[in-house]
Computed example of a mutant assay.
Amino acid sequence: MLVEDGTEPGPAIFDSGSGPYMHKSHRWHGYDGRYGNPRAAALRGACSCGWRGETSYPLSWSTTDGEDWVEDAPTRDCERDWNAHLEQLEAASAEVPDKLDKRVAKLVRQLDNLSDEKPLTVLKVVERLDRQLKEVRQAAAYQVLSDQRGREDGSSWEEIAAALALPVDQVQSRLLQYQRGY
């Protein structure tokens, strides 16, 4: 979301009127110019990794009975740009063998199909998978960190970040969290 000068503002703040807590939001509808928040002028795709879309899509505000609103927000355009970004990340990340990818997709479909009839069974299986995957993730993170620290030819943080589709400034802390079992 961009304001009139083309910058991306901090979170919109909403004072609930009592207590020290103030609700904050980055959702574009909160930027309607009320309550001391700036008015959104355009939208663009964005990702938590720091990526921002190149194209901004203007918002057209209307006023009816004193209320400001946007009739057709270009959210689909932003979503299309974001999906293209995700495809680029996926293409640059570590390759998942096709056979494994299909097995995971099949398991997810089976669990999804079973969730209406036997939701407790699905939860039990997912809980078991969570525990086992946590152990596998922990071991893999340990191996990546050991390789990176222990060898001259170990992968750089940039290569590791690209393989995991993570921002470079987050990859080391994420791997340490995985290694510690979080």
Rank of each mutant, 00 (worst) to 15 (best):
R151S: 15
K134H: 10
D147A: 14
E158L: 10
K134Q: 14
Q132C: 09
E135L: 15
Q138C: 08
E158Y: 02
A140K: 07
G150D: 10
P167V: 06
V125G: 01
A165C: 11
G154D: 06
S156K: 01
A141S: 11
L133H: 11
D153H: 10
L164S: 06
A163H: 09
A161E: 04
A163L: 10
E152C: 00
L145S: 06
V122I: 04
A163S: 14
L123G: 11
A141H: 06
G150Y: 04
A163V: 00
R131H: 13
R149I: 00
S156G: 09
Q138I: 01
K134F: 04
Q132N: 13
G154Y: 06
Q148D: 06
A139S: 06
L129D: 03
V125N: 01
L166S: 11
V122P: 02
G150W: 05
E127R: 14
D153Y: 07
V144I: 15
L166I: 07
Y142W: 07
V125D: 01
V122T: 02
R151P: 00
A140E: 09
A165I: 08
V136L: 13
S155N: 05
R149Y: 04
R131W: 09
L164R: 12
S146Q: 14
E135A: 14
T121H: 05
I160Q: 02
V126N: 05
D153R: 10
A139I: 01
D147M: 11
D130Y: 07
K134I: 06
L164W: 10
R137G: 01
S155T: 00
A163E: 11
I160Y: 01
S146T: 14
A139F: 01
E135W: 09
L123M: 14
Q148V: 07
L129E: 06
D130S: 09
L166A: 14
S156A: 07
L164K: 08
K134L: 13
G150N: 12
Q148T: 12
E158N: 10
E135Q: 15
K124R: 14
A141Q: 06
D130E: 12
W157D: 08
R128S: 13
V144K: 03
V125C: 01
V125H: 01
P167F: 02
L123Q: 13
W157M: 07
Q132R: 15
A161L: 06
